[in-house]
Computed example of a mutant assay.
Amino acid sequence: MRHRLYLLIAIFVIVINAASVSADTSKSFSVTPLDPETKQTQPSYYDLKVAPNEQKVLPIRIFNGAEQAIKVKLNINNGATNNNGITDYSGAGKKSATLKVGFSDIATIDNEEVTIPAKSAVDVPVTVIMPETKYDGQILGGIRVTSAEEKEKPKASGIASNIAYTVGVVLSETETKVTPDISLLGVKTEQRNSQNYISATLQNGAPVIIKKLEAKASVTKKGSKKVLYEAENSSMRMAPNSQFNYGINLVNTAFKSGKYTMTVTGKADGKPFSFTKNFTIKTKEAKEFNKNSVYITDKPTNNTYLFIIIATLVLIIIASIIWYIKKNKKPTSM
């Protein structure tokens, strides 16, 4: 009888959990790009040939599978490159000074917040108007759709709780071949997820997507050839006119102040590049980063108090010996 009771309880818990999962699933929505001409569904992104001053309307179909209406928010973002060497459309990437025409400059949405009725779909038009001047290369961007009813978690957590979809957009006008233009903007120390990094800020200054970026970075003491830290990656991508921090993870090693040299070599779609940059890690920044890192195993210990105690004990012993010798010293006879 008891076993049957436990079985019934287990089945009840499973049913409740399944209902909960089903309820969560019903709150989701989906996003599909439609062909600008035929309005038929197409792959997950737009790859369009356009002309100067041309206007195109990109219909985005948003389907709500929930039993109640939901609100979604749409954002127009420029294509960027995140610190993992992956194309990013979240709008979080730093805008490069080389980006003359961004997707956010030429694309607009009438209503950034849209209500989708229950069990229904709404087509949201995104209007793109190309500049009058002829443009060689590619313009990369993304139409990001997120739930407007769910709040994002605090920035400190680095994780957003709301559902998000992104439709990528690639626009080009000419067949002119544009070659990548890689440059090293600088070297800096930073932390990612409480781990120490030495990062090279790489920039693609050309309006072209780099489909295969290979890079190898190494750090030596200035004037030395001994490699202290290094990193290598042969499967990265870069958005047009974007930059990112290519980092060397020090893993569990502390920053040490001093003068260093970073060397970065690699290929951008077969085009080789090589850079050398001297940089300095200051004592103050090294201490600050090391203090905030939870992974460091070689943190220097503060032995000041130990030295003081040992020195004090040594002085006491020496003073005791001198006192003992003086006390037991026999007077010399005349």
Rank of each mutant, 00 (worst) to 15 (best):
A23W: 09
A23E: 09
A23Q: 09
A23V: 05
A23T: 05
A23P: 00
D24R: 13
D24W: 02
D24T: 10
D24H: 09
T25N: 15
S26D: 14
S26T: 08
S26A: 14
S26P: 01
S26G: 08
K27P: 01
S28M: 12
S28L: 14
S28C: 06
S28E: 10
F29R: 05
F29T: 00
S30C: 01
S30D: 05
V31K: 10
V31S: 04
V31Y: 10
V31I: 12
V31Q: 07
T32M: 09
T32G: 01
T32R: 05
T32W: 05
P33H: 07
L34V: 02
L34P: 02
D35P: 04
D35R: 04
P36D: 01
P36K: 06
P36W: 06
P36T: 02
P36R: 03
E37T: 13
E37D: 10
E37N: 08
T38A: 06
K39M: 10
K39P: 01
K39V: 06
Q40T: 13
Q40S: 08
Q40G: 02
Q40W: 09
Q40K: 15
Q40V: 07
Q42C: 01
Q42L: 14
P43W: 03
P43K: 14
S44E: 14
Y45P: 04
Y45T: 03
Y46V: 06
Y46W: 11
D47T: 11
D47Q: 10
D47K: 10
D47L: 02
D47M: 07
L48R: 12
L48F: 03
K49V: 13
K49Y: 04
A51C: 05
P52V: 12
P52D: 08
P52I: 02
N53A: 15
E54I: 13
Q55G: 15
Q55M: 13
Q55W: 04
K56F: 00
V57I: 14
L58F: 07
P59S: 09
P59H: 03
I60N: 12
I60L: 12
I60C: 08
I60D: 09
R61C: 00
R61S: 07
I62S: 00
I62F: 09
N64M: 07
G65V: 10
G65A: 10
A66N: 15
A66M: 09
A66Q: 08
A66R: 07
E67S: 13
E67V: 07
A69H: 01
I70N: 11
K71N: 14
K73Y: 11
K73Q: 15
L74W: 08
L74P: 06
N75D: 14
I76N: 08
I76W: 00
N77K: 12
N77I: 04
N78P: 03
G79Q: 07
A80M: 11
N82S: 06
N82A: 03
N83V: 00
N83F: 02
N83P: 04
G85N: 02
G85H: 03
G85C: 00
I86R: 04
I86F: 03
T87F: 00
Y89N: 00
S90W: 01
G91D: 04
G91S: 03
